[in-house]
Write a protein that binds this DNA or RNA. Structure first.
Lengths: 144, 144
DNA sequence: CGTTTTAGGTCAATCATATTGACATGAATC
DNA sequence: GATTCATGTCAATATGATTGACCTAAAACG
């Protein structure tokens, strides 16, 4: 009896993660779609924003995709002048990525909707609940 | 200063959700790939398991996809004898979906890895942290 | 100095997921 | 009898991602 309850509770948790993630990506996805972009573009914008001058290789490792999968979307972003590249001074093989001013504006809009969403939820839940949520998420994320 | 810290904390939370979800789907994805199946198939198996005799229409609403997107994977699952259908006694237009014994076995393996993962994390975090995590996830999921 | 490795770019073929649109069938409902 | 509803299916299209192959330029190694 207790096992069944635990199993049902864990299945509920699975659904929370599934529906939570879906709700979490919903708003940026709509903004992106209106510009003909996809979730990949957001991920690139996001990680370049957080890691200015990141190399292609490092970005590939973070995103865990092949360079062919990154190449297309990244080229679009560069053509749209949302991302700028320059050769690394120390090693002219590597290209460092940065957001342009326009890129920062879009990234801010996209990520802003998510920060607002999470911010509202955290404010309502309280600091201890927020900390607990982070601990649990960190443990989930670090599992291999 | 405080605003910048808050912003950085919210960006951390965004990453936790991104990497957390990725780690969460990793293991089922591998099992599925070894059988030539994808994440859609898992979602179908999961929701049919939780809602025996669910109709196609209701499944479409839960998954939030078009019937064309569901049709292919579902047909595969039926051909592989993992899902069975029968006409609803009350309305012979609707087809009720159920897992076969083999379907239950696979669904249990797939979802089992996720339950184990979440179970370990919850056990380590403690019941109050688990409850707080659920509250926060519920709030995120219910935002539109 | 020459060879090898590294970072990156690109072309091609392929696969999975998902969409919109159109059309068909059979069963219920009005 | 006409309409609505649940489902199935065909076609065209888009995106995201993969593997494999081949290329350049720059750095590192010996």
């Amino acid at each position: 009896m207790i096992d069944l309850k635990r199993e049902a509770a864990l299945r509920d948790a699975i659904e929370l993660l599934y529906f939570g993630y879906r709700a979490f990506t919903d708003r940026p996805d709509r903004i992106l779609a209106s510009r003909g972009l996809g979730r990949v573009h957001h991920r690139v914008l996001y990680f370049v924003a957080r890691n200015p001058d990141i190399s292609i290789q490092d970005l590939l490792v973070i995103l865990d995709v092949t360079k062919q999968a990154l190449n297309g979307p990244l080229r679009q972003l560069i053509e749209m002048k949302l991302v700028a590249t320059r050769l690394a001074p120390s090693d002219r093989r590597v290209r460092q990525l940065r957001l342009t001013y326009e890129g920062e504006k879009l990234e801010g809009r996209l990520t802003g909707t998510q920060m607002q969403q999470l911010g509202c939820v955290f404010d309502a839940a309280g600091a201890p609940a927020e900390a607990a949520w982070r601990d649990v998420m960190r443990a989930i994320a670090s599992r291999r």
